[in-house]
Structures are given as C-alpha cells and as structure tokens.
Design a protein around this nucleic acid. Structure first.
Lengths: 327, 327
DNA sequence: CTGAAAGCGCTAACAG
DNA sequence: CTGTTAGCGCTTTCAG
C-alpha cells in the first residue's frame, strides 16, 4: 500500500493537500485536485484507517455483540443492521461472546481503543453494570434484549404482552392445562414472558402448576426436547405448551413426534420468535413474530443518532401472532 | 482511557519503560515493574491497539469471511475457529459478505489497512482472483470452500467421495431411481458433489436422468422445498433423493410431509453437513458429517503458521456418513 | 489555495 | 536497567 507521502511526492504537492483532496476537495483548486487524484489512481492508494483513526478517533465501524450465531433468531436482525449500516457508510463486525464475560471484555476494549465507533448489544448475558458504565462514554444501543436502566437505549418488543396474547390464544381454543417451557429467568425476556403467561392464566382462573413449568438452562433444541419430555412424564399433563423461544419449541416438537403424539390434537404448541425453522418443521409452528429486520435497522439509526451526540428515545415495537398448525 | 504518557508520569518513569513492562517485562527491574504495574492499575490503563498497530503493524485480530450467518453449517466451524484463536491470543471478527462483492472489498481493505492480521475465508462466492492476489501479500486460509489454486491454502473434505458414498448407500438400499438436489454448480463443492453422485450411479449402471436433478439458485429451506416439489411432479419420479446440503434436505423434507409421503418408505432422503437441525426434524435426517469444529481450529493453526511466515500444507479431512431415519 | 509542522499512542533503536 | 527520540500514516491548525 502506498502512503500519503508517496502520493504527495508523486503529485508534487504536500501531504496536507492530498489529505484535503480526500476529505475536503472543495478547499483545493481543481487543477491540483486533478494531479492528486491521478497520483492516487496511479499508486493505487487507499488511506490507512489506522493512521486516520489515531488522528480522528473514528473508524466508521461498529460492533454487534451477540451470544451465539447458532441461534437463527439473530440472522434477520443482523440483516437489518447490516443494510442500514452500509446505507449510512458504516460497517459492522459481528462479535460472538459465547456468553463468556472474558470475551465480552475484549470487545468492549475495542471500543475503548477506538477500534470501533459504537456497539449494538444483543447479548442477554452481557454484564449490565459494565454496559451501563460504558454507555456513559461511548455510543451503545441494545437490541431486543435490554437492561432496565434508563441511561441505556434499547429497541425491543413488549414480551409480556406477547406472551399474554399467546397464552390467551391457547385458552380461547379451550385449553385449560397449559404448560410453559421457559429459559433461565435471569434473562429479562424470560421473566417478562413468564409474567404474561401468568397474567393470562390468572385472568381466566386457570391453574398455574409448578409441574407444568420447566426452565431450561440452555437455549437449544435439546433443552426444548428435554423440557417436553419432563412435561409429558406427568400423570396429569398439560394439553398445550407455550415455549418462550422457537428453538425450544422445535426441540419440544421433536419429543412429541417421538412419542407419536398428534399435534395439535393431543398437544398444542406455541413458540416465540418466528425463526425460519419454525415454518419448516412439521406441522408448522404457531409462534410470535417480532419485527426482527426493523429492530436491526432501527437500532442502527439510534446508534447513529448517539454518535452524532443526539438524545435517543428507546422504542418498543409491535409484534404479532402467527397462527400456523401446532395450535 | 489513560495513555502511556500518563502512566509514565504517574509511575515516575519514561514511556519506554512502561512499554517494556507491558511487552518485555524481563528487561525491567522488579521494583520498577511494580511501580508501573501499580500506575497501570490505578489509572485503569489499557494499551491502545491503534497506536500499537500503527507502530508494529499487528492487531492480533483476524477476519472470518462467511456468506451468511443464517446457514447453521458455519456455526460449529466458527466455534472451532474461535476457541483456537483465543488460545493463540487472537480474536476474530465475523464478516458477513452476503455474497456481495462490494462488501467483500471492504473486508479485504481491512487487511490491507493492517486492521487485521489475517483472513479465514469460508465464502464460496468470494472473488477467487482477488483472493489469490491478496494471498501473495497477506496471510489467508480457506476453510471448507476452496479455490483450485495451489498458491492458496485450504482445509476441506473430499466432497466428491462423500457424495459418492452417500449415493452408494442409497443404491445398496435398493434404490434405482435416485434424484439430486444440488446447488448452483459454479460452487466448487456443488460440482464435486455432483461428480460423486454421477460416479456412483455410473458404477452401478443406473440411469442419470436430467429430470431428476434440480439445481437451486439459493441455499435455503424454500429452495429445497421447491426442488422436491419439482421432483415429485414427475410422472416417473425418483424413490430417493440426495441433497448436497442439509438446508436443502430439510426444505425437501417439508415438501414430503405436505404431500403426506412416508419417509423413507416412499421417498428416501440423504442430506449433507449434519447441521444441528438435521437431527431435530422428523424423521431425523441421514446425512454426511464434516469435522466442522476441526476444520475451524485447523484453519486457525494454518493461519498462524502463515503469519509466522511458515510454509503451509493444505489439508483434506475425513468425513463420515450418519445414517438416521430418512434412508 | 497550499505548505510546514505538530501530534494522535505506541514501540524500538540507540545511548548511557 | 532506563531514558531519549524517531517515526508508523494521517489530519489539522497556523502561516503565508
């Protein structure tokens, strides 16, 4: 790679002028501009982000933190993020934290080190205190998952209400015994969806039975399957189950197949997230759709505002139920 | 963030000494070390990657190029990459190219700009010429997908042989009419898997019928489903189908469900990749397992060797068939 | 409109 | 063992 000095020498001007041609062309005479442009082309020059960053402290890059790329839920959000970012002249780097605090620190340091201009965090396992502290100094936006702290901006949905509606839908269908496959309640959305579940059951005077609630440790197919196995093993088992994530629901569905239970006749199932898989399994999964693409692109807009130093309002987007064939 | 100067002043030493304490502690007296360590702690100092990079031209970061994170095939490879990278003191940045050449350029520029020390490319759509050219200057390794060019290192499997074995397995089961759901043959693995398919059929004197071969444009569930729909619509339809990717196979399976065909009795199905989902669908998919984790970690080792300036041998790893219930 | 020069944070000779 | 200093590639005053 040629450096700015080489270009300057080649064009017979100073480095300052080269820099001006690149950043503020109006301040340079047309003729000089032309000479420099020519040198740039000839030498195949590209400004070094490193040198520039060191000087200006901006990289036009931002970090997207997510726990694991194997959860398809993130795929579409990232799509939205990526498109909007590129539109705004930014690039994104995906950072898989694997829910490992040590790894998180590495990525946080990247922003401290000015290797990135901002962070979109989608990681529910993120250290909230650290995130809040960091957000006082650097542009940070939370997407989907969020900490209950008003110094931190987020874009998300109303999980409690969505869960409430899902369970209500099961009730309207005549179900009286409704199970819940939940994720570890230390995650905000898990506890919110639990509350929605609870609220619906209470409203219709239905029993909330501990035996019908299973909290998984992990968010993968196997956990969902195992949860359903436990639920099925009860003498008095539920006739419908609400799973707080499609990944869990799909795993649960597998267990139903293994036990040759007819879905939804012998067991109804309601998922959450509307991941691509949910429409490929058989029968297609009834689920809650989040506006994933929008969540992604909006979080970028929010981040851009923050970078510009503007005040940013957090946002709760609409969801909707997608009734397919498991209910 | 505190700078090295502030630390130096606080500790009452020169910046050089601070730098030494960080990079080559042995060259510093214990007592001085202690003072500096203390200052570092007090001021919460972390070396700026930017300043360091500008000076040393290394970031201990590398880029992982992949077309799309929504293909679960990559998840496990990335796992292998990530673990090995961290072990080696490196960090990775995931770069989704979306098969968009423009985006590719951005990431390639990052390495030219010394923002990363190396690249692992898993993108089959990557511009091969550019990659080859780049690889003469920068450390680059291909993982899974590869260009047939011996200047470029890769780690992969023998796709042709794997496909051959898969189809042979179907033949041994008594199938005489075997369809193929393939991906665009401009991708090397697609053409290799095609060759394996062809070879097996020829060996057993079975008909290779164009109508039984469908090349999808995209690599997603829907394409697989559509492919199977076409295959089923034939008057003389195959009794078994080999799909070159689990994603396609899973989509195909959905179409079989919709048509109420019993699997494998009325239609057998063989996938490829052993993605997590393949064992969750019903019936569980027979497929080819690639050593994804190993591919990931080996590609890191290869990249490290390259960074150290060593010669690197490309590698073809073993695969194996996983016979589940769709055959 | 253009050039000279300072400096972003760091490392690595070089001297002592 | 430690300090001084040049310089990585760039942008940005400040003069002219």
């Amino acid at each position: 790679m040629a450096t700015i000095q080489e270009v300057a020498k080649y064009a017979g001007v100073s480095v300052a002028t080269v820099s001006r041609v690149i950043n503020t062309p109006d301040k340079v005479r047309k003729h000089t501009q032309f000479k420099v442009q020519n040198a740039i082309r000839e030498l195949n020059y590209e400004p070094s982000v490193l040198g520039r960053s060191l000087r200006t402290s901006q990289t036009r890059l931002f970090l997207v933190l997510l726990p694991s790329i194997s959860n398809p839920f993130y795929a579409q959000i990232i799509n939205g993020i990526q498109n909007k970012a590129i539109e705004s002249g930014y690039n994104i780097l995906l950072c898989e934290t694997d829910s490992d605090p040590a790894r998180e620190v590495i990525f946080f340091n990247m922003i401290k080190n000015k290797l990135a201009d901002g962070i979109i965090s989608m990681d529910p396992t993120v250290n909230k205190e650290r995130l809040i502290e960091l957000s006082t100094k650097y542009p940070i936006v939370q997407c989907s998952e969020y900490a209950k702290d008003n110094t931190l901006s987020y874009v998300t949905i109303d999980s409690e209400r969505a869960a409430y509606q899902a369970v209500k839908h099961l009730i309207k269908l005549g179900h009286k015994k409704i199970g819940l496959i939940n994720f570890d309640k230390k995650f905000l959305y898990a506890s919110e969806r639990y509350r929605g579940y609870e609220k619906a059951l209470k409203e219709f005077d239905l029993e909330i039975k501990d035996d019908w609630i299973y909290n998984t440790k992990h968010l993968n197919f196997e956990s969902g399957q195992q949860a359903m196995r436990v639920l099925l093993n009860q003498a008095d088992r539920p006739t419908a189950v609400f799973a707080v994530s499609d990944v869990l629901a799909v795993g649960a569905l597998k267990e139903l197949h293994i036990n040759q239970l007819r879905v939804p006749e012998e067991m109804a199932l309601f998922g959450f997230d509307n991941i691509e898989f949910s429409n490929v399994v058989y029968p297609p999964l009834t689920t809650v759709a989040q506006p994933m693409y929008d969540m992604g692109s909006i979080s970028v807009q929010m981040l851009m505002s923050k970078i510009r130093g503007e005040e940013v309002e957090s946002l709760v987007l609409d969801h909707h139920l997608i009734i397919r064939e498991t209910t």
